[in-house]
């Protein structure tokens, strides 16, 4: 009799039943609702890929991690079912640390040979010894021999302190995760909006799009609550000058930032030709610059409240839900410890 592997158990399969029916018959609690491959209530994670029909309509982030709808997969054709979120782990180390602004560091780490990713995805960094884990987005290209991360140094931030304390710091890397990746559709207009180090995945996507000679307009809006949060301005302005389809807009809206501060460039990332950053709410800036988003592919990365607000705003402005990708950055002090 054939069996379905579920964690460390072998469950007997009855006839042509689905994975869902098999699991329920053996007393494994799995949610379900429509049983038609639409509602996604019955998702389970496979050790390897499931048949395509069982992944129809799933977000890339889920299908890449081999999640599938158990009601749509015959138990006979199912991969082994694993506990959720078991990701491959690789060893790595910090190669170089550069200060980009008073609060943001560019941390380059060694790329594990086996780690395949797309620019804009994120990885989890694990500190050896105590297992402290934090997510960071990838700003480098998928073909680079290293991985570039942007690290905001937070007061008392255990991982940010560890990563920026010097070179050859040892790390474990898990991943990749996330669905903020370049769509490889050169005629789709792109809107990239991020706050703080939410710029990292957007930069990864932008680099991939420019490498692919993306034809349609690309608009990148980077916001921060203070000038310290804006970085890579010189690089972005250089790219804007070199690629006519690319527009870079920056926004600082903190009421506490004085005009004198606003006009002084960062000591570590000077941008002499930079115009003054806008001083309005980033959501308002998006609404003002791009009131209609039908046909746009939208990427939103950064503060969770802003990502949520912008997702709704962009959807109501005409962007299709399937073309809005988001990566809310949740810090360790928030209730959820992952992005």
């Amino acid at each position: 009799m054939s069996t379905l592997r579920y964690l460390d158990r072998e469950l007997a399969i009855c006839g042509t039943e689905s994975v869902l029916d098999c699991l329920l018959r053996h007393g494994v609690p799995v949610g379900s609702s429509c049983r038609s491959g639409v509602c996604q209530s019955c998702l389970v994670q496979g050790a390897t890929a499931a048949p395509a029909a069982a992944q129809k309509g799933l977000k890339l982030a889920l299908s890449q991690r081999h999640f599938f709808m158990s009601c749509q997969c015959p138990a006979q054709e199912s991969p082994a079912i694993v506990e959720s979120d078991q990701l491959p782990t690789f060893t790595s180390q910090v190669l170089k640390v550069t200060q980009l602004s008073p609060s943001v560091f560019r941390v380059v780490i060694q790329r594990p040979l086996e780690l395949q990713f797309e620019s804009g995805q994120f990885i989890q960094l694990v500190r050896p010894g105590d297992g402290l884990t934090r997510p960071y987005s990838i700003a480098s290209r998928d073909y680079d021999e290293f991985i570039e991360l942007h690290v905001a140094r937070l007061a008392g931030g255990q991982m940010s302190d560890y990563l920026t304390c010097g070179e050859q710091v040892k790390l474990n890397v898990r991943g990749p995760l996330g669905e903020c990746v370049y769509s490889k559709s050169p005629t789709e207009p792109l809107l990239l909006v991020g706050t703080g180090t939410g710029l990292a995945p957007l930069l990864g996507i932008l680099r991939a799009a420019l490498d692919a000679h993306h034809q349609a307009p690309i608009s990148l809006i980077h916001g921060a609550t203070s000038l310290d949060g804006l970085y890579q301005r010189a690089e972005l302005l250089r790219l804007q000058k070199a690629h006519k389809q690319f527009t870079y807009t920056e926004s600082v809206w903190s009421p506490t930032t004085s005009l004198a501060e606003a006009s002084s460039p960062h000591p570590t990332d000077t941008a002499p030709v930079a115009a003054q950053p806008h001083r309005i709410d980033i959501a308002q800036l998006v609404r003002q610059n791009l009131p209609q988003l039908k046909g746009h592919r939208v990427y939103l990365c950064g503060h969770p409240d802003l990502v949520r607000q912008l997702k709704k705003q962009c959807f109501l402005a005409g962007a299709s839900m399937s073309m809005i990708h988001s990566d809310p950055f949740v810090t360790a002090s928030s209730t959820a410890a992952v992005k």
């Binding site: 609702s33 429509c34 049983r35 038609s36 491959g37 709704k312």
Partner: peptide, 27 residues
Amino acid sequence: FDTVDMERQHVKQKAFLTMAFGGPNHY
């Protein structure tokens, strides 16, 4: 409908419309 997880809500709307359109469902 205005929830934190818009994607999840979107999936629920799709399931509802599939049913209303006479598509496959076992509700």
